[in-house]
């Protein structure tokens, strides 16, 4: 890749990693962690991993509504610590991020402060060593850590999302630094997410979802699928969302499927039991819910389901040994119009 074709501004900074980081921090170009300096040589290496014109526009990133070109993605990829072979995932992730269905503008402007959860499916998980096993939502894998981080840097450096001004997260949460997992397809008794969404099993995809911090759905007592799912559903009680994410650990998945539950039956079983019980909420809250959802004709005996429909629950099998699943609430409201955000899955072109 000939770097003379790059359109980004060249900046001369002292050839010292401390000085470069001080400069980037002063400019507001980092997430607070040190970055790898995006030299022309490193950006060229990143671009050499994909057969794309550096000026191809993958999407437009709010709130600056700036174009995410392949070149700009590559710069942020270097800064995040990505390897060049991650580029196809990053391009697909940027496409998902900027799909209008995700409604990134709202996700970035809201006081709610959601993260972008990326779920990677297909053979690329193994090729890039993207973790879907033990500690999947935690630390320890370069691909997970830096792919998720690059997406955050794209939001910040291309999209202009700055905490306190254009990002109005009241608290945020650590997932906003980086949140990228692989589905543990080998340990799943069901079709993986991408197959459920119409992609071939040997295709690779990335799914972007608006994610609030998770709630642990530990269950070391149940030996039956209905027990695990009933306890899981109780963790999902409370305000609903446009979608909901069940990250089911392999041990739980094996028991649930062993008792005959298909993935769709898992969703239906949980959907029928999880919800926001209007009899338990204060009067003001009840009145507000009535105003927001006139279509539901709520009474004090109503239970607002966790999502509008069972199929809005996303089931992913991930994690290692142990009986520890997690529920991830999806930021936003379910609305009569279909919700304020929707997850987006894009094919990764290798």
């Amino acid at each position: 890749m000939d770097s003379s074709a790059f359109q980004s501004e060249r900046i001369e900074v002292s050839d010292d990693v401390w000085a470069v980081n001080a400069f980037f921090e002063e400019k507001g170009w980092t997430d607070g962690l040190p970055i790898i300096p995006p030299t022309e040589e490193r950006v060229a290496q990143m671009l050499a991993a994909v057969k794309r014109n550096p000026q191809d526009v993958i999407g437009v990133v709010p709130p600056r509504w700036a174009r995410a070109t392949v070149e700009k993605i590559a710069i942020n990829a270097v800064m995040a610590g990505c390897l060049p072979q991650y580029m196809p995932v990053l391009i697909a992730a940027a496409a998902a991020l900027t799909d209008p269905k995700l409604n990134l503008y709202a996700l970035q402007a809201t006081t709610g402060g959601p993260a972008i959860l990326l779920i990677v499916n297909g053979p690329i998980r193994k090729q890039l060593n993207i973790n879907g096993g033990s500690n999947v939502l935690g630390e320890g894998w370069r691909a997970n850590a830096t792919i998720g981080r690059c997406v955050r840097l794209i939001q910040r450096n291309i999209g202009g999302s700055y905490p306190g001004t254009t990002c109005k997260a009241t608290l945020g949460w650590p997932g906003k630094y980086s949140l990228c997992i692989a589905e543990n397809e080998e340990a799943s008794p069901w079709d993986p997410l991408h197959v459920e969404r119409g992609f071939a099993a040997d295709a690779s995809t990335v799914t972007a979802i608006s994610a609030d911090s998770s709630i642990r759905a530990s269950d070391l007592d149940s030996t039956r699928g209905d027990g695990i799912l009933t306890n899981f559903a109780h963790r999902m009680n409370g305000p609903s969302g446009p979608e909901a994410i069940m990250v089911i650990c392999p041990e739980h998945a094996k028991i649930i499927a062993g008792d005959g539950f298909s993935k769709q039956e898992v969703k239906s079983f949980v959907w029928e039991r999880a919800g926001y019980r209007m009899r338990d909420v204060p009067e003001e809250t009840f009145n507000q819910r009535v105003k927001r959802r006139p279509d539901l004709k709520l009474t004090r005996d109503s239970v607002i389901p966790v999502t509008d429909a069972p199929e809005d629950i996303i089931v992913v099998v991930a994690g290692g040994d142990g009986s520890q699943s997690q529920y991830i609430h999806v930021w936003g409201q379910s609305t009569p119009e279909g919700g304020s955000t929707r997850s987006v899955t894009k094919a990764i072109q290798v």
Partner: peptide
Amino acid sequence: DAFDALAKSEKEAFG
């Protein structure tokens, strides 16, 4: 007023 800076940024972005 908490969204003042965001509104300014949007006005600029949309010209």
